[in-house]
Nucleic acid binder design. Structure first.
Lengths: 391, 391
DNA sequence: CAGCTTTGTATGTTTACTAAACATTCTTAC
DNA sequence: GTAAGAATGTTTAGTAAACATACAAAGCTG
């Protein structure tokens, strides 16, 4: 026991062991490992899986056979010889399972069926609602998508605004009129598939992570649109906190006094750094949309307002960088239409407010995903929760 | 594989599997589990270990036998019968291993030999130094303590001020005149025992956690003395970040303008909320010590200065609470001598600046440990790193 | 075509958890 | 004071899953 294997990466050191380990868990771990290798290096071979996993060829072969039996992967023919017997190629089986992914963070609820290769197969949108009716709308959306699903359901993933209590399955969202709404329990009556709910910013963070993993192990996604919220992947783990109200940085009061915020308080970060706040200052059409923000970005008269919003955001993010020692800070939401000038001011402002040791390696950039980041992140949540795999 | 065992606690969802699992790891995990149970419920019995671990009596018995062989636990006689054969009691063997723990965060370097029951067996202090000489002093301290160690060394734990790059073993500290100093590598020449270095606030957080685990799974320790720094345990994991500069909240710039800080910047949280800042405002003896701070706490003339410091700290901590959704916020350092009024203002200020959903359950309290928290935390770091156990 | 390389499988071993029976030693009830 | 019962802990046999080794299959290279 003295020769402890150190955790593969630094960052989060587990302090003690909590549950027994069994052969079955060993097997599950290795099945997931093999599946991840196949997802990452597709198409690949049994021999490659053995090399990448450091398992023996016999074990790797056996694992692949079990994954074939489960329908999660498939043989796709024969590959080129590397000086010997040519490999039988193994790849994810897109039609092995379906994932239903939902984004209910805007007034239109968006849903999709996603296959195991991460492709969106079907989409459907319904006008949203609030309160209990909203849950009913979501349940309908799931049922409709389930009918069109071409494969057994792996699970349902939902990205919602507000705060999610994951273990209890409760959601609190002002927009949706939910206060500790038992969304998971209600939806469980609409489908047998496991349901995974997360905050929209966390879903987007997960998607961003899955695009860049494993090169990037940690990142902070900062959603700036009508409001401001963050989602965090720390050392390959989605950080959801004890009561899941993590990343609610938009409602931190920066200034005493200050404008009144939708939360009832005054001087929140959102009142100075959100895109709503920017539009309020600029005047004209107040609809927070990519088009409208892009319009503002081009407007010379808006220059100082944009700078003020950028400075405020940088100021709000500085403590985050000091606490998490983030390297990757991804801006996402309507803010992505503001362009390079804005981004540079945010980065400069963070740098000027935090120790150099924390900012030497930071990178502030816009998210690579478009409007489907929440949907794709919700699907990624199901994939990682059910199969332990990241696209 | 579809029947995934959900992680025992929420908070940190692992996204994918990174390394193969083997029988050996199963065994190691279960040895650690058994050891943790014995540490937590000492004295206990083989049958109790089986029940608590959910392993079969045969396996639990075998694990305990191996722990006995390793000298980590011992039989301490026979316990009272519970209606049948009385148990042979099992307890940690205090003399099974020794841990050398160091606190080099003040001008006097403190060292101790700690036994496996967490008792401090020997202490020694040497006047510290800076630069390469400081490393030499630390090496001497380790050697001296190693000589007086009554048992085989489990490892050396060090709590240092500044920033630690754990994987590389580098330390950067203004106080000690270290910039990426290869402390781990240098000390490895003084001892064969594994060396674990962490930030002083993180060490204190670890100690605080070990006092309250497993009732508390996460906590933030806020060290307020000459400077301000935080250490975080998240869901039973010590959070050290990617480049380990986590928790450096003292040097976040709150106000443009503001006083000059030791870091070279202006307006840092430390310049308004540290105990140095408080003393500067109050006048008189400027030595940051418990006695001096207690004196200030009693001084009616200092009331407004204390309130200002408390307000500033609460303001600085608000983003932390919003991001981590902390429930337990532990104040530690010389600040603990400021008393209840100060604590209450800090708590009030945090509550007024963050969403209610984040503050409903928070508790701001003073640390339970005294000046030996860093030493004890450094020892706990060794114990958890080498044996996977928390006291 | 011989020899080498790579892929993949087959056979048997080892490790460590499980299951079930049992031995041991105490308490309780009659 | 003896029998029944209960809790502790061990023994024996069984099994899952990784490992070690050998080897078959299928290609490339000279």
């Amino acid at each position: 026991m003295s020769t402890t294997t150190p955790s593969a990466r630094p960052g989060l050191t587990p302090l003690s062991t909590r549950a027994k380990a069994t052969r079955g868990q060993t097997r599950t771990n290795n099945l997931r490992l093999a599946l991840q290798i196949i997802f990452s290096d597709s198409p690949t071979s049994r021999a490659s899986v053995a090399r990448a996993s450091r398992l023996t060829p016999a074990t790797a072969s056996d694992l692949v056979d079990e994954l074939l039996d489960l329908g999660l992967v498939m043989e796709t023919g024969t590959g080129p010889s590397a000086g010997g017997k040519p490999p039988k190629l193994i790849a994810p089986n897109p039609e092995g399972r379906s994932i239903i992914a939902l984004d209910i963070s805007s007034s239109l609820f968006h849903g999709a069926v996603v296959d195991l290769s991460g492709e969106i197969v079907t989409t459907r949108s319904i006008l949203g609602n609030t309160g209990d009716a909203a849950i009913a709308v979501v349940a309908d959306l799931i049922s409709e998508l389930a009918v069109s699903s071409p494969a057994p359901l792996l699970g349902v993933g939902i990205g919602t605004p507000g705060v999610v209590d994951v273990p209890a399955g409760l959601v609190t969202s002002a927009n949706l009129g939910w206060h500790d709404a038992p969304v998971a329990a209600e939806l469980a009556r609409a489908t047998d598939a496991p349901i995974h709910i997360t905050n929209d910013a966390q879903a987007a963070a997960l998607h961003e992570y899955s695009v860049h993993a494993p090169a990037v192990a940690s990142l902070a996604l900062v959603q700036v649109g009508r409001g401001i919220g963050t989602g965090h992947v720390l050392d390959g783990h989605l950080f959801q906190g004890e009561n899941a109200a993590t990343g609610e940085i938009g409602h931190v009061r920066l200034d005493d006094g200050g404008k009144r915020c939708s939360c009832g308080n005054t001087g929140c970060l959102e009142t100075v750094a959100s895109m709503s706040a920017l539009l309020e200052k600029v005047g004209g059409d107040q609809t927070v949309s990519h088009d409208r923000i892009a319009e503002v970005a081009e407007d010379p008269a808006a220059e100082s307002a944009i700078e003020a919003a950028a400075v405020a955001l940088g100021r709000g993010l500085a403590p985050m960088v000091a606490l998490f020692a983030n390297r990757e800070i991804v801006l996402w939401g309507e803010v992505t239409s503001l362009g390079e000038t804005y981004r540079r001011i945010v980065e400069r402002e963070i740098r000027s407010r935090v120790l150099p040791v924390n900012t030497e390696q930071i990178q502030v950039r816009y998210g690579t995903a478009g409007d489907d980041a929440v949907i794709r992140g919700a699907a990624a949540l199901v994939l990682s929760s059910e199969l332990g795999v990241v696209w």
